[in-house]
Design a protein around this nucleic acid. Structure first.
Lengths: 196, 196
DNA sequence: ATAAATCGCTAACGCGTGTTAGCCAAAAAA
DNA sequence: TTTTTTGGCTAACACGCGTTAGCGATTTAT
């Protein structure tokens, strides 16, 4: 009998969720089996159900914990009294750092949310839509103030969010530049693309 | 008995491959079943096997037909005697148009190649790696000629390719700007981000 | 020390999967 | 018109999936 190891303040469920993120990222949600996950955790598949309700629950937890972090950040940024372009840069840097430091979770939330079931699915899609609208609104205010050049704001959002998800390639590449360099390069190119 | 309808020069296999692209895009490769595909084609699942070898073969065909189009294009662009920045813009516009007009195929090739099996998998990954290096080399030559600002070329490639895959969101959005506007906005932002 | 809760295990379930075998009608070739 | 090929069909296969039941050992609470 091989109990799941836990440190203080890390529940066995947390261990499972974390391993699930890694597995879902690697294989995709559908292709990752509970038996795979069990093996990664060091336990039999049935034992997982002492800690979780279902496979889908794992996906909920991952998707919404990520979504909540982003919503909280945009609340914070919107409230600040700084130029729009600085708000954009702050959000951008936040996204980049989330993708660098919470890679697996963020990636899974980004790519695998399709496999959520209603009502979680509609809920997640809504949150996403609203987030993008709020982001676009910041860009639009930047355009009105002539901080940002005249472009279609939703398209700009789409470019930025997807560009950031490209950090996936950075993670998997063998000859990585440093995280700090990556951040600076991305900000240079993306903020540069909006201004000037 | 409901035969698969075909026009001239479109084989029954082509019909299946096209429907497969649509289905794989919508549900993901693993989650899309052969019975789903059969229904979309208007036939029983077993009947599909009169035209194809396996489910994975469908993925091969999609992935490599897309990859070949991109490789052919970069061959063509590299051979031209024009400034690097114009080469970059040409590739960019090609990517954008591919994503606009062959959405399902390109999307599937981009997101579902993980489910290829060796030797196709390694093959595909190699082609991808080489393509990106060639793209980065063009950017680097642009930097040497001072057409492009000093940035990490692989990072620039990563941003551009992933930004383009964001056209997925455009396809699914209800209030679309026109394809032409989308293209111009993307080029403005991305080329603008490299130059300035 | 005793009781209760926690957390592993094995066995098994029902179901959906990709795929094959074998048959027969329609279409194409002779 | 006859023969051959094509392309449907039904039935079935072996397998992997998520999940549950029920048991016993270890840990925690009393």
């Amino acid at each position: 009998m091989a109990r799941i190891k836990t440190d203080k303040n890390i529940s066995r469920k947390d261990v499972i969720v974390t391993k699930a993120a890694s597995l879902f990222r690697e294989k995709g949600f559908k292709a990752a089996s509970m038996r795979d996950l069990a093996e990664a955790v060091g336990v039999e598949a049935a034992s997982l159900y002492n800690h979780i309700k279902s496979k889908t629950e794992l996906l909920h937890e991952l998707c919404f914990s990520v979504a909540n972090r982003f919503l909280q950040k945009i609340d914070e940024v919107e409230a600040e009294k700084i130029p729009a372009i600085e708000k954009i840069e702050k959000l951008l840097r936040f996204h980049i750092n989330e993708m660098i430091h919470h890679y697996e979770e963020v990636y899974v939330s980004d790519r695998e949310w399709k496999h959520l079931a209603d009502p979680y699915l509609s809920n997640f899609q809504n949150q996403r839509r609203i987030y993008r609208k709020r982001f676009a609104a910041i860009i639009e205010s930047g355009i009105r103030n002539h901080e940002v050049k005249k472009i279609d704001a939703p398209t700009a959002v789409l470019i930025m969010l997807h560009a950031i998800s490209g950090i996936e390639s950075w993670h998997r590449s063998t000859q990585k530049i440093s995280a700090a360099e990556l951040e600076e390069n991305m900000v240079t190119i993306l903020v540069g693309g909006l201004t000037q």
